[in-house]
Nucleic acid binder design. Structure first.
Length: 322
DNA sequence: AACACGTGCAACCGCCTTCGG
DNA sequence: ACCGAAGGCGGTTGCACGTGT
């Protein structure tokens, strides 16, 4: 039994040990057991479910595994530009209400969004040497990074292959932030409309231009609330996870069932600062060898946190000190 | 090749809320 | 109204893997 991931713990652990409860990473067999059980009986009553299915796991563990990983509508892989924009926007509104934010990103789990926030956004707040909750950082996010994301989304819609953005686009003429004050933001592009209204006020009409994906309210979204009855009709008993996940052709199924390999953000390009911000090809690396914004790092999703952000932040701080 | 370091993310913990008897 | 169980949520941890030296 693989207990590598087991955490040292408390009295509960000894109690669980007595019951021979497993902890740590789930095995393929456990996943199959859980999937098949839910396919037959539905979800809910997690403690009972764990016992009935013969899983030596806590109900909580089963629930978490199902909701964050095994549920058929869970999306894994790159967080899209639109999703990143939504996360930034919704977090600025609601803070660390991950589950609430997740309701507006179909297929994304609160855990995934939380991880995204912590690993990406908080990391860069740290790099900018400011608190993630500080006004300066929030302003930088709102008036610099979010408009930049919008530009990227628009640019991607305009030129899906090669993106050329003029320097003028970086002048923040875009009045993104102002719309936020109206409890609504709208991103216009040439193809369609992407908007978000406060869910407490009205139904959403969120139509992303890049995909056919429709954004729905939590109330009518299958991902917003757990759907206990839909799954049973979709999946009959399976014996192999490759039946469950749609494995792309020419893909090693064993490899495919590796979340860490699927979740490759490296090709998720948010910006290309050397071209986007500094069209003359300014070499940021040579400017400051200690800069944390490594343009050659390969993870372009980090690249909209850059020297310009630093300057913007410094300006904010100066303004506040005046 | 081997090691050190950094990063991403699955899984766990503990607290709070909701539900049902 | 009360209480215990279950569910939900945000915070945290630590392992696997990638990258640099």
């Amino acid at each position: 039994m693989d207990e590598k991931g087991a955490r040292s713990s408390n009295t509960l652990l000894s109690c669980e040990d007595e019951m021979d409860l497993r902890r740590g990473p789930w095995t393929v067999d456990e996943d199959l057991t859980l999937i098949n059980y839910i396919a037959t009986h539905g979800e809910g009553r997690w403690n009972t479910l764990a016992l009935s299915a013969g899983l030596k796991r806590t109900g909580k563990s089963c629930r978490l595994r199902w909701l964050n990983y095994l549920r058929p509508d869970v999306r894994r892989g790159n967080i899209t530009l639109e999703e990143q924009l939504l996360i930034l926007e919704l977090h600025s509104r609601w803070g660390n209400r991950w589950s609430k934010i997740a309701q507006y990103l179909p297929g994304r789990t609160d855990n995934e969004i939380k991880n995204y926030w912590r690993t990406r956004v908080q990391k860069h707040a740290k790099q900018l040497k400011c608190d993630v909750n500080s006004k300066q950082f929030k302003d930088t996010m709102r008036y610099l990074w979010m408009p930049r994301l919008v530009e990227r989304i628009q640019a991607a819609a305009t030129a899906p292959v090669t993106t050329t953005v003029t320097a003028a686009a970086t002048n923040n003429a875009f009045t993104y932030g102002n719309n936020l004050n109206n409890n609504k933001f709208e991103v216009l592009n040439h193809k369609g409309r992407m908007g978000l209204t406060d869910p407490s006020v009205a139904n959403n009409d969120f139509v992303g231009s890049h995909v056919t994906q429709s954004y729905t309210t939590p109330e009518n979204s299958s991902t917003g609330a757990s759907s206990s009855d839909s799954f049973g009709t979709q999946v009959s008993t399976i014996s192999d996870l490759t039946e469950y996940y749609s494995v792309p052709e020419n893909t090693n199924s064993a490899d495919y069932y590796q979340p860490s390999q699927i979740s490759n953000y490296s090709d998720n390009c948010i910006t290309s600062p050397s071209g986007f911000l500094f069209p003359q090809g300014l070499d940021l690396q040579s400017m400051d060898p200690n800069t944390p914004w490594n343009m050659q790092s390969g993870d372009s999703s980090d690249n909209f946190w850059d020297v310009e952000s630093m300057l913007f932040l410094e300006q904010q701080l100066m303004n506040d000190n005046m």
